[in-house]
């Protein structure tokens, strides 16, 4: 029951993207297509689960004063592993996500969960919390990526939805499209949660 709560918290109530508004750089940068969004989400989830679990395991060994550099080393190790493995086995995806793979290190979600949750809770709960947060991040990226791909390129996960040569909303694939789509999605999420609150009360 506790584990279930740890898992679903990241999906909605404390969704990193829509509710906490952290770790937004990759959300905007890599979501030109749905598949990019999913891949970035999965890579971040892997780092989140592994680093949360390991940091929770090491929480009694690491002295309080040097905990932040210690966490950063642990996180950077997993990020570099993801970076190298993707470069070797998924080179096309690696070249699209590019810079934003090494930048998972400074994604506030990862360090934030290490500090706020993993440093205080058991290994299993920390891993589940990381998984929940990662999945919450992944669905946000996938949603944004899908909307931008459908409107900007006229396709969904690479499958063309419109005839070749149809004029699509090219602006959606460009930086302004990312900002505006995320802004509108934030407003939609606020409306949904406001309605939820009204129902409860």
């Amino acid at each position: 029951m506790v584990l279930w709560k740890d898992l679903i918290r990241g999906l909605w109530a404390e969704n990193p993207t829509f509710r906490l508004n952290i770790g937004l750089c990759p959300v905007l940068a890599v979501t030109t297509s749905a598949i990019n969004g999913v891949s970035m989400g999965v890579a971040t989830t892997f780092v989140l689960v592994c680093s949360s679990a390991l940091i929770s395991l090491l929480k009694r060994i690491i002295p309080d004063k040097v905990r932040i550099p210690a966490y950063i080393i642990v996180i950077a190790t997993f990020v570099t592993i993801v970076d190298l493995v993707m470069h070797a086995y998924l080179p096309d995806l690696h070249s699209v996500l590019g810079l934003f793979i090494p930048l998972i290190v400074v994604n506030c979600i990862v360090l934030g969960r290490a500090e706020a949750f993993a440093a205080k809770n058991s290994v299993v709960r920390s891993a589940v919390d990381g998984l929940g947060m990662g999945l919450g991040f992944t669905w946000a990226l996938t949603l944004l990526g899908s909307i931008r791909e459908i409107l900007g390129a006229g396709s969904f996960f690479g499958h063309a939805l419109v005839a070749e040569g149809t004029t699509t909303l090219g602006i959606m694939s460009l930086p302004p499209g990312a900002f505006i789509t995320l802004g509108i999605l934030m407003a939609v999420m606020n409306m949904v949660s406001a309605r939820q609150k009204r129902k409860v009360s």
Binding site: L58, I61, I62, P63, V66, P69, A70, I73, V74
Partner: peptide, 10 residues
């Protein structure tokens, strides 16, 4: 202890 722990992790 701080130095040793950090060095071992690194």
């Amino acid at each position: 202890r701080m130095v040793v722990v950090l060095a071992v992790i690194a």
